[in-house]
């Protein structure tokens, strides 16, 4: 099922949580809504589910305008951040709940509901736990039951709010891979919210980066990481360093020196240069480069991260050096960014 969010605005007590957001989700796609807290990602998910009504704009399921349909009529599977399992019901009853509350002929007989619950438990690899209560399950198991319960109603769209947020790192990684497998097997259109970029980039077909109630960028992991289209995305996804620079006649200047980067299409004036700390070319001499003195250095896994003080303003930037690089405290290092991007000075 395709989902189209068209110019949706949402206000809570006059405070806008989403400004004019539009997003097309393709059928069968696995999409991540990624952003810091307060970016509006959960609000967008709840709007798609029908747990909130948009202040303006529409949400389409396929060609049908679902904006004013209730959550019951939208037929979405929603997995809540804290699972919201019914604690007084067994695992099987939890999973069968969505079928049990149906009316008339669409409601399967009790035996069929039990069979379906067992099937779904097999799918989420929890066979045999039918009679357990939620309190008797681990966090990861509850997560799986919540997913099985959401899938029991054969939803058109599967929505997950911070699905792995409450789990420890080991379980998270396991469940992440497992969710991908389930998605590939069942082919549900799936949207999940996360603040963990690693999770979003690894798991999703496309990532929607959000900030302050707006969508900053939509793209595959490669798009988002390699060509961020705003300072926010540069700063939020992966590591980044920035320097205030000037553009003059298509060349980039740092204070009074050109740094050997050409920007022929950029307008002259103040700008901010963004690059990745690991994507730099180290230079020996310095005619047309960025040079600074090492102010701090720390070992990060397989590399060394150093902080350089640059120029008279003592602007600090971070770059990565090989561990065997001889640079010590106060020594001078010259480099030029590999892949970089200019944004107008803020």
């Amino acid at each position: 099922m395709e989902v189209r969010v068209a110019n949706v605005r949402k206000e809570f007590d006059r405070f806008p949580a989403l400004h004019d957001v539009s997003l097309d989700i393709k059928s069968g796609e696995l999409i991540a809504l990624l952003g810091p807290s307060g970016s509006g990602k959960t609000t967008l998910l709840r709007l798609i589910a029908g747990l909130e009504r948009p202040t303006r704009g529409n949400i389409f399921f396929g060609d049908e305008d679902a904006s004013h349909k209730s959550i019951q009529d939208r037929n979405v599977g929603f997995v809540f951040q804290h699972y919201a399992l019914f604690r007084h019901m067994t695992v099987a009853d939890n999973i069968g709940f969505g079928l049990k509350v149906r009316h008339g002929p669409s409601r399967p007989p009790a035996q069929e509901i039990r069979r379906r619950a067992s099937e779904l438990l097999d799918l989420v690899q929890l066979s045999g736990l039918e009679k357990r209560y939620p309190a008797q399950l681990s966090g990861g198991q509850r997560q799986r039951v919540a997913l099985a319960r959401a899938m029991a109603i054969e939803p058109k769209v599967l929505l997950l709010d911070e699905p792995f947020g409450a789990l420890d790192a080991q379980v998270r990684r396991e469940l992440r891979r497992w969710l991908r497998e389930i998605h590939d097997a069942t082919g549900h259109t799936t949207v999940f919210v996360t603040h963990d970029q690693e999770e979003a980039l690894e798991l999703a077909d496309r990532v929607v980066v959000m900030s302050q109630g707006r969508i900053e960028q939509v793209g595959t992991a490669d798009d988002i990481y390699d060509t961020p289209n705003s300072p926010f995305v540069y700063g939020f996804i992966g590591e980044s360093s920035s320097l205030p620079v000037k553009v003059e006649n298509g060349e980039i200047w740092l204070a009074d020196r050109p740094i050997g980067l050409a920007a022929p299409n950029e307008p002259s004036g103040d700008a901010t240069l963004y690059f990745r700390p690991h994507d730099v070319e180290l230079l020996d001499g310095c005619s047309g480069c960025i040079a600074g003195t090492v102010a701090a250095s720390r070992r990060v896994a397989g590399t060394r991260r150093v902080e350089l003080e640059i120029g008279g303003e003592r602007q600090r930037v971070e770059i990565e050096l090989p561990v065997d690089h001889p640079a010590a405290h106060k020594s001078r290092v010259a480099f030029r960014p590999g892949r970089w991007k200019l944004f107008p000075a803020s």
């Binding site: 019951q72 599977g77 919201a84 709940f97 969505g98």
Partner: peptide, 25 residues
């Protein structure tokens, strides 16, 4: 409201939500 929202998302109406979820809680 978490449990009630979950029940509604699974298709339960208001009365079913109250009877099967809120009241037992």
């Amino acid at each position: 409201n978490g449990d009630e929202e979950a029940a509604l998302s699974l298709g339960a109406n208001g009365w079913q939500t109250f009877w099967y979820v809120t009241l037992p809680n």
